[in-house]
Design a protein around this nucleic acid. Sequence first.
DNA 1: CACCTCAATGACAAAGTGTCATAAATATTA
DNA 2: TAATATTTATGACACTTTGTCATTGAGGTG
Lengths: 202, 202
Amino acid sequence: MVKQTFLNLSVEKQNKILTAAKEEFARASLKDASVANIIKKAGIPRGSFYQYFNDLEGIFYYLLEEHSKDVKKRLVDNLVKYKGDVTKSFIDLYQYILKKISKEENEAYFKNIFLNMDYKIEKMFLPNLEDNLNEIIQLIDITKLNIESRLQLIYVLEIIESVMMRNLIQVFQRSVSKEKNIEIFIKEMLLINSGIYKKGDN
Amino acid sequence: MVKQTFLNLSVEKQNKILTAAKEEFARASLKDASVANIIKKAGIPRGSFYQYFNDLEGIFYYLLEEHSKDVKKRLVDNLVKYKGDVTKSFIDLYQYILKKISKEENEAYFKNIFLNMDYKIEKMFLPNLEDNLNEIIQLIDITKLNIESRLQLIYVLEIIESVMMRNLIQVFQRSVSKEKNIEIFIKEMLLINSGIYKKGDN
DNA sequence: CACCTCAATGACAAAGTGTCATAAATATTA
DNA sequence: TAATATTTATGACACTTTGTCATTGAGGTG
């Protein structure tokens, strides 16, 4: 958890600490990173760190939250732009995230995050369906979807998010080009759209 | 990594250590568990532990491997039993895993695993598609599937595994009964089967 | 018995964690 | 302005854990 003390700090000092933290998380996963390294890089005493955050996780999730907000905003924008088309919105979102995590200055940082992505981090990273459900659901055009209830729409969103996340992780896991990776994601989305079973056989 | 020295030990001694480790991993996640606790519980000196395993992860993944083998066997059995029907095979597999992880004596252990499931653990836990692909693919009846290539079949399997895994995690994350959880998984499988888009609209 | 191989042992250095009492800085009030 | 209250800064400290390593012990073999 971030503490009020940190938020009271000048923006410059905040940034100095956040930058140091990001460097540390670019060097090592949450599991292997250390408070010791962050304070060394930021040039602050140990005690200060613990005035600002509860622990290492605190600053890790604080950093991650920025991206989370950004991703959610893009999804909402997309749903408006594509008039509620879920598939188009998520394919665009996928490309947006991919571009972001591939940026030179972010790559090592996101590599550590994605290769150690657990479901707590995933929940933080993606627009949290449980919290923002209503806002997102309202924007979706359900007339094209093969669903009969709000609950089924949630299932659809969860399936898409699962598939999206796994594909993003594979960016760092497999030696596949960005272009190929997008192609695979789109193909999987199309499979989900049309169904994996032959029509009529079900 | 497990070392040969451990495998040379008597089965009783091996079990004493594995039991202690399982207790520790029932108490805490991989991140929070400690070698110190395992050796205390097992009553072995510190040096011995490091003769048997490289580190904590070593024994963690060694334990997990047992389940991995078991799950893979069940999937193969299912594919035979259900004559290559992917959906039926995975729904049965899902129920099998759910039953196993809900067992009294396993619950705390699996809770820690699933709530801290990252993609490295996931890869270990599930029948590894990359390693066992051929064996599994051969058993699948593709005539019912809406696919045109071997590659698409892999996509289908990956989608199913993603969805399965997320639902398993939610057993421990959400306060939903086992029955309801199975129901949701089945509904999601049916959605994937028939497609999330209305037929003809695509 | 002498030798060899492999297992057992626990002291140790290194590294990190989170806390706490105290000092310093800043804000508030009289 | 001076006194007081609040907030922030600091680093020493106790504690926990890790992985190593030199030494000891046990069992088998020629």
